[in-house]
């Protein structure tokens, strides 16, 4: 991702998310974990969206996950991303059970597949802002059981 820091839309850190972004600066991907129902929660928020208990606890993630879906942006998301196109935007299911939007930055782009294993790559994009991007994991692809019909 080559968009200049001045152009790229950066997360506007708030009281909900400050701890998440602070941990990323320390090369840690963290999410909340509900102390009542045990569910991991992303993005950070006040109440568990599953059981509505107050969210207090944070846990560090393994940084590993699986591509749930992806697209190759041939046209950029506005001028800030023009220099990057084409690039992969993906939904990654972390092994902890939460899904996040991110970029899979491995090349060639054609190697990105649904079901591919990915691992976090901490990427500094601006002063104080580190994004949790992902790259294809070196380990082999797992058996993909997510297709609902045959072996498609």
């Amino acid at each position: 991702m080559n968009a200049s820091p001045a152009e790229r839309p950066l997360p506007v850190v708030d009281a909900d998310s400050a701890r998440f972004w602070a941990a990323l600066r320390d090369r840690k991907l963290t999410v909340q974990r509900c102390g009542t129902c045990g569910r991991h929660v992303f993005y950070p928020r006040a109440l568990c969206p599953n059981c509505h208990a107050e969210l207090v606890d944070w846990v560090e993630c393994s940084g590993r996950g699986t591509v749930y879906s992806y697209t190759v942006a041939r046209r950029p998301a506005g001028p800030a991303f023009a220099a990057d196109a084409p690039y992969v935007v993906a939904l990654v299911d972390l092994d902890e059970g939460v899904r996040m939007l991110t970029n899979v930055v491995s090349t060639p782009l054609e190697n990105v597949r649904i079901g591919a294993r990915v691992v976090v790559r901490f990427t500094d994009v601006a002063e104080g802002i580190t994004l949790p991007l992902f790259e294809l994991a070196p380990d082999p692809l797992p058996t993909d059981s997510s297709a609902r019909e045959g072996t498609a």
Binding site: M1, A3, R8, P9, L10, P11, V12, V13, D14, S17, F42, Y43, Y68, S69, Y70, T71, A73, R75, P76, A77, A80, F81, D84, Y87, V89, L91, M100, L101, T102, N103, I114, G115, V125, L131, S146, A147, R148, E149, G150, A152
Partner: peptide, 28 residues
């Protein structure tokens, strides 16, 4: 949106593209 916009998903087409890709994967 601080957790999505920084990743440059073309909007709104990119979200629909993610759905289409998944539908293709699951159902051919």
């Amino acid at each position: 949106m601080q957790h999505e916009t920084p990743y440059g998903l073309p909007t709104p087409v990119g979200g629909y593209a993610l759905a289409a890709m998944r539908h293709m994967h699951e159902y051919g």
